[in-house]
Nucleic acid binder design. Structure first.
Lengths: 229, 229
DNA sequence: TCAAGAGTATTTTGATCAAAACTTTCCTTA
DNA sequence: TAAGGAAAGTTTTGATCAAAATACTCTTGA
């Protein structure tokens, strides 16, 4: 019934939602019954997710969801910042009127959801907003990299909750970004994006540090070295 | 006999060496006999490489080596530049004396091989040099990303040949980079790295554009859309 | 009581097989 | 002659099974 890409999506979703916590073991047989398929699609989906870096596989010892700690999250944001500032620069250079229109539209929607207190839709539209910028940059490889990282960060926000008051500042950042991209000001767009991500990094790390036990984040058993070839 | 990580390495090496050209089909049965193993390790290795982005898999239609064109290479360098400039900045901030020592040592070796005309060892030491900087930055995730991209670029240099006179300028760049990292000048290190990569990008693209038929680069049959989730 | 070791059980890995999907070839028909 | 379609042949995908490796447990000995 379900194909491998579907299984992959299911696994990803369950990791984001926290249903499969960071650092938890991923037993093939267990997952096979969970999703109602045979071993084979699970095995292949796990291999792909290993290649993507979301899952760690140790030979003859099975798979686990990648373990997360504070320094890893810092590193993650450093990578995301590096790539997205570059993409913001390119987006300012290459954007079409269509991109600009969609950007404004997404931001309007973002503010509508914030005003309505719909904090389920807000992160989705936020992702959409950044996706439009990154797509306007015309670098599909970089786009998929950012999306991959976005996934992990989304999983973390999920666990620590969005603090609603953050969103007003986010909106301000977005509006300034749109303006810079509109006037094709690559340097400003890049810098604004850098600041925007730096702020997100700070806020998330603060939320994580505030949680005394880092619920579901630090692995129970100290995981072995990640075999991330 | 051979485990999955081994098969992965073999596949990677054969792609870099050009034995498995960009865009070529990867038939499971064919590869199984080629490496003398059964279907299963091949299937799983291909899935991992798909997750890494080196291989493209279309459902029910099999795997191919990813197709390369000029715009993809440009995108690749944009990503690498974004990440490595960030890493150079961090390396300048975080480097130890040990890192500095290894950096000088690697660069001495680099120049020795250039002088000796050993153009097989030169790219290896070049990789080592950049690897030391990136490792000094202390971001293992970013390091593995850069290495992944390095692989593709190495495969391209391989096909178009190093132009020996390039290396003198490379050495000059490296020496300046070392100096900036030595005095913990993050801004300069980042900028020098950016320029260094920009030059490499230009040189490689020029070599590729010069080759009229782009030997082995453009796929024979126009590949379908990459299913790069 | 604790440590060590043997034996059992669980789990991953590799191999074989069947079924589904896609490709190609060849034949028919307009 | 060209286009459409059916059938044969490949190739991937999913399922089952055997073997190897690891984890666990229970017993024995100090």
């Amino acid at each position: 019934m379900s194909r491998i890409p579907d299984i992959q999506r299911l696994l990803r979703d369950d990791i984001i939602s926290g249903s499969l916590p960071f650092g938890s073991r991923l037993r093939i047989d267990e997952l096979a019954t969970r999703y109602g398929v045979s071993h084979m699609p699970i095995r292949e989906a796990l291999r792909e997710l290993h290649g993507e870096g979301l899952v760690v596989i140790e030979p003859n010892r099975g798979a686990r969801v990648r373990s997360i700690d504070l320094s890893f999250v810092e590193d993650l944001f450093d990578i995301r910042s590096a790539i997205e500032t570059m993409l913001a620069r390119r987006a300012a250079e290459r954007r079409t009127e269509e991109h600009l229109r969609k950007l404004v539209e997404a931001q309007d929607l973002f503010e509508t959801f914030v005003a309505a207190g719909d904090f389920v839709s807000v992160p989705k539209v936020n992702h959409l907003f950044h996706g439009i910028i990154n797509e306007a940059a015309g670098n599909p490889g970089a786009l998929s990299l950012v999306d991959r990282h976005w996934l992990l960060v989304a999983a973390l926000w999920q666990r620590y909750g969005y603090t609603p008051k953050r969103f007003d500042n986010v909106s301000d950042d977005h509006r300034h970004l749109i303006r810079a991209i509109e006037r094709r000001d690559a340097a400003s767009a890049s810098m604004l994006m850098g600041a925007h991500i730096e702020k997100a990094k700070h806020d998330l790390l603060q939320c994580m540090a505030a949680d005394p036990n880092l619920n579901g984040i630090v692995p129970l058993k100290t995981a072995k070295r990640a075999s991330h070839a």
